[in-house]
Computed example of a mutant assay.
Amino acid sequence: MPRRTATLLASTLLLIAMLCAGVLIQVPYAEMSPGPTVNTLGVHGGDPVLNIKDKPGEKGDPKKYDTSGHLNMTTVRVTGSEYRMTLLGALSGWLSDDSLVVPHKTLYPEDKSAEEVDQENAEEFTASQESAKVAALKELDVPVSSYVAVGAVEKGAPAHKRLHAGDVITAVDGKPVSKPEQVGLVVRGHKPRDNVSFTVIPAAQVKAAQKKGKKPSSKDAGKVTVRTGKTKGESTARVGITTMLSHSFPFEIDIKLADIGGPSAGLMFALGIVDKLTPTDLTGGRFVAGTGTIDDSGKVGEIGGIQMKTLAARKKGARFFLTPAGNCATAAKARPDGLTLVKTSSMDDALSSLQKIRKGETDELTRCKAH
């Protein structure tokens, strides 16, 4: 066989072998890509994303106003926990501008099951809605009542079937609590197999009060005794609950958005609520998108997958993107053409930037820069 033919044949066989290896060899990576982006001022799946409900005949009903433009929250689409990326898939993702390849454990930690990750994302999404409501109403000087509630109960834990998600805890061992961390401090002060007494308003009574825009009544509270267990690998007492700060609002704010998880829509939900409850049209008809966690005080926190979210927003038509300060440098390195990245650290920053956008004073915006 001529040398040239042999070389060509060997090269072809090597290429085939490499392609087969690329298709068959699995690598520990996952892929992120631009996800759906939804206008918080609009309708999704046939229902308003933000529905602020009047209570006819009750004093203090909210006055709602028409809105225009967009205040879009953005998402990232990720491969499932069972998906196993091939070497060829990873190479393709690394070369693509529309996807981001990350270690599989970044999305699905090895010490958590897929169900635990989904549950955590759902809880973070619920908590972000609560914080968005609080931050928005504080901005509008609307009073909000706060209390400590059970966020989740671990299956099989000492508190399982004794305490329930949504229960309000007013005291532990007779000591009043006003912050979630106070519950854990009292519990950890016990030894395993000690009894802990929780003063609890059941979730059903809490929900009924919330529907009326009222704070849960201590008259509905009762005592629940839980025998502590032991933290795995330690001698610390535990009961197996997570606690959170929950709230009562003077009117009902219903956020409907299915199949979304995580806390990153908090800022855009808060802005949407403010827009619907104030006569000022926040966007002035402009297309603004954004992302960012938000806490009860209105502080905006950074999120993951920022490059995919800016891509999703621009493809949908956004011209301005409210970007958490902590994500600014990363976002600026891959800024889509035609999209202005606006540095945002707080609710006040966002409202100030929206004022400049609707007035056409965009040269005065604080823009993200790549360091």
Rank of each mutant, 00 (worst) to 15 (best):
E123P: 03
V76W: 08
L100D: 10
L41S: 03
T293P: 01
L137Q: 03
T79A: 09
S68W: 08
E82A: 15
L87R: 05
R335I: 02
L140S: 09
L140T: 13
L15P: 04
K155F: 06
K299F: 01
C368M: 09
S345A: 14
L140I: 08
V239K: 00
S345H: 06
L14H: 10
D281M: 04
L339D: 01
T291N: 12
P28R: 01
A325K: 02
E139D: 09
R188K: 13
A270T: 02
T293A: 05
N195Y: 12
K179T: 09
R162Q: 14
V226C: 04
S264K: 05
S145Y: 12
G292W: 00
G338I: 03
G292T: 01
V43T: 12
Q26H: 12
Y83A: 07
F251Y: 15
Q205K: 14
G213L: 00
E115M: 12
Q129I: 05
V300R: 00
V153L: 06
S128T: 00
T37P: 10
A237M: 03
A17N: 12
A265V: 00
T344W: 03
E130R: 13
P250V: 00
L14W: 11
G261Y: 01
K359Y: 14
K212V: 08
T12Y: 15
L50C: 08
M18Q: 15
P34C: 06
L8N: 09
L95I: 14
S128M: 01
D194H: 02
T366Y: 10
G272H: 07
P109S: 04
G266C: 03
I303M: 07
G213C: 00
G22Q: 04
H70Q: 15
E361K: 14
D118T: 07
A370P: 10
A152V: 11
G80V: 03
A165S: 13
P62E: 11
S146I: 01
D173N: 14
G292S: 06
T199D: 02
C20A: 13
E364Q: 15
Q205W: 11
I253Q: 02
R193Y: 01
A258S: 15
P62T: 11
N121F: 13
S246K: 04
I357Y: 00
K175H: 06
A122F: 15
S68Q: 11
T366G: 10
I253E: 02
S345I: 10
L185G: 04
V38M: 04
A332L: 07
Q26A: 14
T323D: 05
A318Q: 02
F320K: 05
S11F: 10
V224R: 08
D167G: 02
S68H: 11
D167E: 09
M244F: 01
A165D: 06
H70C: 13
K343C: 09
A21H: 15
T344G: 05
Q205V: 07
D363P: 06
T291V: 09
V186L: 12
G189L: 00
K343R: 12
V226N: 01
I306G: 08
Y65D: 11
T79H: 09
G240T: 05
P202M: 06
P192H: 13
M18L: 15
R238F: 13
Q205T: 11
G46R: 08
I253C: 01
L245P: 00
T67A: 10
A325C: 03
E31W: 04
T7F: 15
